[in-house]
Simulated assay, not measured.
Amino acid sequence: MKSLLLSLLAASTLQAADHVVYEPAGDSKGKHIVLLAGDEEYRSEEAMPMLGKLLSQRHGFKCTVLFSLGADGTIDPTAGGSLSHPEALDSADAIVMLLRFRHWDDATSKKFEAAVNRGVPVIALRTSTHAFNGYPKGSPFAAWNFNNNGGWGRKVLGETWVSHWGNHKVEATKGIIEAANANHPILRGVSEIFGNTDVYEAAPPADAVVLVRGQVLQGMTPDTPPASYKKATAAKVEQEVNTPMMPVAWVRVVKNDAGTENKVFCTTMGAATDLATEGTRRMVVNATFWGLGLEVPEKADVTPVGDYNPTMYGFKGNKQGLKPDDFVLGK
């Protein structure tokens, strides 16, 4: 009996030294979601495994989580040139990503490019608007750099890094559903949307459908009132900070370099701490269903599998010594 239980556990979660795979529980949807963790600030190394467990065990997707690793095999958010086991991208049906300033080698970059060019849906969180930077001049991927006319973020997602619109680590974000698009399937069953990260300045293109706008709050909890003051946009236009509110979640369909189309969901929310809020989590899960062309549940189960107590964001303070193995089911 003991050996049988161990065999079942091994079959339920396949794990390799440099990545983690969550096999679907219950009825499999036959889709493979690849989640990319790689940022120095917003704890993607905690957020992506949580989403992978949730999507596999609650909703029947196979999920593979890839990380930025140091030379010793531990998770290192500052290792901008690293993406573990990029081969997983070869069979990706969807990509969920929280990246910042990555600059992978050519082989890894080509696998990401090939997945996008196949037309896979892209669900992009927070700093993914400026996912890439540091490709040298002359690299075939230098056009991805965020400071190259907005790079990959502006071209594919519809925006790049512009500015902190709310005051960083002082003013949190309350998501306000765009009334004209309240019936969009991604918003199905979504009520409270909150994140303790600040609103980013963003101006997605005309082909984007804005789903949620970010109300800048005076404090860091959802019960604090809206902020009220004026500031200048990147275009030097002064406006009230919440009039109009900045878009924080939108969708678009983009034709890629291969001529196929990608369904794109982008939110400038989505740090690990933002995903502690049920409504914010449900929006991301719903976006995955939408991207894959599947019926979005009336109220998707977004209960985390196991404990989820994300570390506060910041350029310092990430958990040290973590390995992909620490995120297998049951740990």
Rank of each mutant, 00 (worst) to 15 (best):
G189T: 02
P204F: 09
L187T: 11
S191G: 05
A182I: 14
P222Q: 05
W165Y: 06
N167C: 11
V170C: 00
G195N: 12
N196Q: 12
V162K: 10
V170S: 06
I193R: 00
N181T: 14
R213Q: 15
A206F: 05
R213V: 08
V212A: 03
R213S: 13
D207Q: 09
H164F: 13
W165I: 09
E201F: 05
Y200Q: 04
I186C: 13
V212Q: 01
H168V: 13
A203S: 15
V209F: 05
E171P: 06
E201V: 08
V210A: 06
V212E: 04
T173R: 01
P204R: 08
H168R: 13
N167P: 05
E178C: 12
I193C: 04
F194D: 00
F194A: 00
Q215H: 02
Y229Q: 03
G189N: 04
H168Y: 15
V209N: 05
R188T: 13
N183Y: 10
S228T: 13
T173D: 07
G166W: 04
A179L: 14
M220E: 14
S163E: 13
A172H: 07
G175M: 01
A172K: 00
V190E: 04
S191L: 02
E171W: 04
A208T: 01
E171G: 06
R188M: 07
A206M: 03
Q215E: 14
T224F: 05
P185M: 04
E201D: 11
P185V: 12
A208S: 15
G166F: 04
K169N: 14
V199Q: 01
A203F: 11
T224R: 04
V216C: 00
A203P: 00
N196C: 13
A182D: 14
T221G: 06
N167Y: 12
E192L: 14
A227P: 10
G219S: 07
Y229M: 02
A180K: 15
V190D: 03
Q218V: 12
Y200G: 03
I177Q: 12
D223Q: 14
V212L: 03
A227Y: 01
A179I: 11
D198L: 09
N183A: 15
P185Y: 11
W165E: 04
T197C: 11
G166M: 10
L187P: 04
G175H: 02
V216I: 14
M220H: 01
V199I: 14
A208F: 02
M220S: 08
V216A: 00
G166A: 07
Y229S: 09
V170D: 05
F194V: 03
E201S: 10
H164G: 09
V210E: 10
T173N: 07
H164M: 03
F194C: 01
I177R: 08
V170P: 00
Q215A: 13
L217P: 04
V216S: 00
P204G: 07
